[in-house]
């Protein structure tokens, strides 16, 4: 018997931003997979169309960009804000399941 938990339907701007930042952080690896697998669809290197050095530059550029974006995100994600919005937001974290 759980007491019905009352939660506001709409969040204040700051917690709202934090939620969206988490969403973005979750999507970042998906973006990474996309760019890392994309070359598999290119024509094979070395057949005159592409050069190996371009592949090297491509991978390391994407890699560096991912690291940079992750660094920006990490700052916002690890910041604790005092006004509540505690760590476990059951809305998107807890796979509530009656068992």
């Amino acid at each position: 018997m759980k007491p019905p938990r009352r939660r506001a339907i709409f969040l204040a701007p700051r917690p709202y931003r934090r939620r969206r930042l988490r969403d973005a952080a979750r999507l970042l690896p998906v973006l990474g997979v996309f760019f890392f697998v994309l070359p598999a669809l290119w024509s094979p290197a070395g057949q005159g169309l592409r050069r190996l050095s371009e592949d090297v530059i491509y991978f390391f550029t994407v890699w560096a960009l991912l690291i940079g974006i992750a660094a920006v995100f990490a700052r916002g994600l690890s910041a604790r804000d005092p006004e509540g919005d505690p760590e476990g937001d059951p809305e998107d974290e807890g796979e509530a399941e009656d068992d």
Partner: peptide, 21 residues
Amino acid sequence: SGLEFVTIYLGPTLVFVGWWW
């Protein structure tokens, strides 16, 4: 095997970049 070696480091990169998961 050319650039294939890089996958061994890209995989962990994806896991760490997606640490929130």
